[in-house]
């Protein structure tokens, strides 16, 4: 039992270190590839926790390799818009001064009801109150209220 206790503590500490190395991005809004990494990390860390016959490196090494991959992926996507679009997608303007872009909603597999739900979560209850609504690659909706005179560039 003591073996398992010590293993859990070691893996917990290593996981925290790896998450810190990955930066605040992991803790804040996640891009799709970051969500994948977070899910994988959760699973990998538990592999050797409860089975003392599995070497502890079976949990620690994958965490470190994931960190390395994530490190380079983040650097690459900052340098290349193409890679960023492939990995994270690109933000999409779904509402503009001309109205709702239903074609874009169809491409995103979002129905109007879901869009209205996202708007309500941003305290927008009428689309006439906004100039632009942009669906970010993280799934968040950004809105530009009407009359603020802001221009949107992606």
């Amino acid at each position: 039992m003591l073996t398992i206790v010590i293993r859990v503590i070691i893996i917990y500490v290593i996981t925290i270190i790896v998450m810190r190395l990955m930066g605040k991005r992991q803790i804040g809004e996640m891009e799709p590839f970051e969500l994948v990494i977070t899910l994988i990390i959760a699973d990998l860390a538990t592999i050797p926790m409860s089975d003392p016959t599995i070497p502890i490196w079976y949990g620690i090494l994958p965490l470190l390799v994931i960190h390395i991959i994530h490190f380079f992926v983040v650097k690459l996507q900052c340098k290349s818009k193409t890679i960023r679009n492939i990995l994270s997608g690109s933000p999409v303007i779904v509402i503009s001064p001309t109205g709702i872009d239903y074609q874009k909603l169809k491409e995103l597999d979002i129905c109007k009801d879901e869009l209205m739900e996202l708007l309500r979560s941003k305290d927008v209850f009428d689309i006439k109150d906004i100039d632009y609504a942009i669906l970010e690659s993280s799934g968040k909706l950004s809105v530009v209220p009407k009359g603020e005179g802001k221009k949107v560039s992606l």
């Binding site: 190395l21 930066g23 090494l61 470190l64 390799v65 960190h67 390395i68 490190f71």
Partner: peptide, 14 residues
């Protein structure tokens, strides 16, 4: 610092 730590980890793993 993150670069250094990442490179060190890569070297150790290799």
């Amino acid at each position: 610092k993150r670069w250094i730590v990442t490179v060190i980890i890569m070297l150790i793993i290799t």
